[in-house]
Amino acid sequence: MEYMLIFTESAADYAKRDNPAEMQSYWGAWGAYVNAIEQAGITVTGRGLLPPDTATTVRVRDGQRQVHDGPYAEAKEMISGFFIINVPDLDTALEWAARSPSSSYSSTEVRPVMPPMAP
């Protein structure tokens, strides 16, 4: 089954990315995790995302395009990256989610991916 691991991080976690005192351990942890999950041969795809302040949100209402600066909703923890993995069951997916650095300081959501639609 395919699952999406959705990593979330708080503003403070995002800040570690460029903080000289913390960036090494931050990127070191993510690098190791990404390497391990790639080595396991279970990844379908996966990427990290730039911080939420780079986000732009679009809505179309009554044919009018509304564009606003920022993510769709302000939240304490925002999506910072994802992997889609192909593993036998939820327990295996949860195991990989638990290994993510984000699970130790924020959280990781595990969601089954929709099976392909019938033609």
Binding site: Y3, P88, D89, L90, D91, A93, V110, P112
Partner: peptide, 10 residues
């Protein structure tokens, strides 16, 4: 069913 909770003994 949807999340694939497995039938297994931990």
């Amino acid at each position: 069913r949807a999340a694939g909770v497995p039938f297994r003994i931990p």
